[in-house]
Computed example of a mutant assay.
Amino acid sequence: MADTAWSTGELEQIASRDELDVAPRRSDGTLTKPRIVWMVRVGGDVYVRSVQGTDGAWYRTTRGSGEGHVSTATVDKDVAFLDVEDSGGDSGGLQDRIDAAYRAKYSRYPGPVASITAAKARATTMRLVPR
């Protein structure tokens, strides 16, 4: 699968929304029931995390096919879920930039932001790549 890019319009629409519906593809090819997740844009990429860490059902399903579908009011795309390695806390690393994006976008929810930027959730960071 070749990586493709989000269009500028798609990135703007995704960034302007608080929630994204994520439906991972099961091993039999069917999609799960969509789950609402928070997402952030960092540069030209979109990232999601499981606030439940590796215990999150939707996250566990992504481990199988690595594929699924995402949607907002105006964006409707098949995607690949690509794991993002933790930079080990290096200042300025990608994970730190993703944390900063979550803090900026969802600052009005300090408790949930603390959860989505905690090590448990950070370990499940995935980049969404349009297919």
Results as ranks from 00 to 15, higher is better:
residue 43 G to T: 02
residue 4 T to F: 04
residue 7 S to A: 03
residue 20 L to M: 13
residue 117 T to F: 02
residue 127 R to P: 00
residue 47 Y to Q: 03
residue 17 R to G: 10
residue 83 D to P: 12
residue 45 D to Q: 12
residue 53 G to I: 11
residue 50 S to N: 06
residue 61 T to I: 10
residue 31 L to Y: 14
residue 86 D to E: 08
residue 16 S to L: 00
residue 16 S to M: 00
residue 44 G to P: 01
residue 51 V to P: 00
residue 6 W to T: 04
residue 67 E to Q: 15
residue 39 M to R: 01
residue 12 E to N: 11
residue 21 D to E: 13
residue 72 T to I: 05
residue 58 W to S: 08
residue 99 D to P: 01
residue 99 D to A: 06
residue 26 R to I: 08
residue 4 T to L: 05
residue 92 G to M: 08
residue 91 S to D: 13
residue 59 Y to M: 01
residue 25 R to S: 13
residue 130 P to G: 08
residue 30 T to L: 12
residue 110 P to K: 10
residue 11 L to N: 03
residue 65 S to A: 14
residue 10 E to D: 15
residue 119 A to H: 05
residue 61 T to V: 14
residue 40 V to M: 02
residue 36 I to M: 03
residue 65 S to E: 14
residue 125 T to I: 01
residue 26 R to W: 08
residue 76 D to N: 14
residue 119 A to K: 11
residue 95 Q to T: 14
residue 90 D to C: 01
residue 102 Y to G: 00
residue 24 P to I: 05
residue 4 T to D: 07
residue 20 L to S: 06
residue 26 R to H: 14
residue 128 L to D: 05
residue 128 L to H: 09
residue 63 R to E: 14
residue 129 V to T: 12
residue 88 G to E: 06
residue 11 L to Y: 04
residue 23 A to S: 15
residue 4 T to K: 14
residue 35 R to G: 00
residue 27 S to R: 15
residue 9 G to M: 02
residue 130 P to D: 10
residue 55 D to W: 07
residue 128 L to V: 02
residue 96 D to K: 09
residue 5 A to Y: 07
residue 16 S to C: 00
residue 27 S to W: 10
residue 71 S to I: 06
residue 98 I to N: 02
residue 64 G to E: 15
residue 96 D to F: 00
residue 129 V to Q: 12
residue 50 S to Y: 09
residue 68 G to V: 04
residue 32 T to L: 11
residue 115 S to N: 08
residue 49 R to N: 07
residue 117 T to C: 10
residue 50 S to L: 08
residue 14 I to F: 03
residue 6 W to A: 02
residue 28 D to N: 15
residue 64 G to W: 12
residue 80 A to L: 07
residue 77 K to R: 15
residue 75 V to Y: 08
residue 80 A to G: 05
residue 65 S to V: 05
residue 2 A to H: 07
residue 94 L to K: 00
residue 101 A to P: 03
residue 110 P to N: 11
residue 82 L to A: 13
residue 130 P to F: 08
residue 18 D to E: 08
residue 35 R to H: 10
residue 113 V to A: 04
residue 60 R to V: 12
